[in-house]
Nucleic acid binder design. Structure first.
Length: 119
DNA sequence: CATTTGACTGCGT
DNA sequence: AACGCAGCCAAAT
C-alpha cells in the first residue's frame, strides 16, 4: 500500500485509490460518490479501478448505491463490516446492506483534528 | 485511432 | 421488490 504519491495522481486510478484509502473504518462511500469527488461521473470507472488496483485499498468501504458491496464479494465485505462495526441495515441472512443513511461518508469532512494548530 | 469492457446508476416495467 | 434497458466514463486491447 502507499505505493503512490498523494497529491500527484498520474491517472484517474491513482485519484480513486487516494479517496478510497481516505475512507475511515465504519464508513462507506458509493462508487458514484467517489467518482463525484474526483469530479467525474464514471461510477463504473471507479469500480473498474477497484477491480484492478483495489486489491491494495479497503475496497469493502466502497459499495454500490444500493448499499451493497460488489457482487461475489458480499461475504468478504461482511466480514470487514462486522469487524469495523459498520452500520448495517438488514440481517446478514440474504444480502449485506449497509446503512448508507448513516454510514455514508464524505472525504471533505475530515474528522476534527486540532492536534496541530498554527495561527 | 476505434472498439469493447466493466467491483455502476437511475428509471421503467 | 425484482429484472431489464440505456447512459456515462476512463482504461485496456
Amino acid at each position: 500500500v502507499a505505493a503512490w504519491q498523494p497529491g500527484a495522481p498520474d491517472s484517474f486510478a491513482e485519484a480513486v485509490l487516494e479517496v478510497v484509502a481516505d475512507i475511515p473504518a465504519g464508513r462507506v462511500m458509493t462508487y458514484g460518490d467517489v467518482a463525484a469527488v474526483l469530479g467525474s461521473r464514471g461510477a463504473r470507472v471507479v469500480g473498474q479501478v477497484m477491480a484492478r488496483y483495489g486489491s491494495d485499498v479497503p475496497w469493502w468501504r466502497v459499495i454500490r448505491a444500493s448499499g451493497q458491496p460488489p457482487v461475489c464479494h458480499e461475504h468478504k465485505a461482511l466480514e470487514h463490516y462486522v469487524s469495523e462495526d459498520t452500520p448495517l441495515r438488514s440481517s446478514t441472512g440474504s444480502g449485506v446492506r449497509v446503512d448508507l443513511a448513516s454510514a455514508r461518508w464524505s472525504p471533505e469532512i475530515r474528522w476534527p483534528d486540532h492536534s496541530n494548530d498554527s495561527t
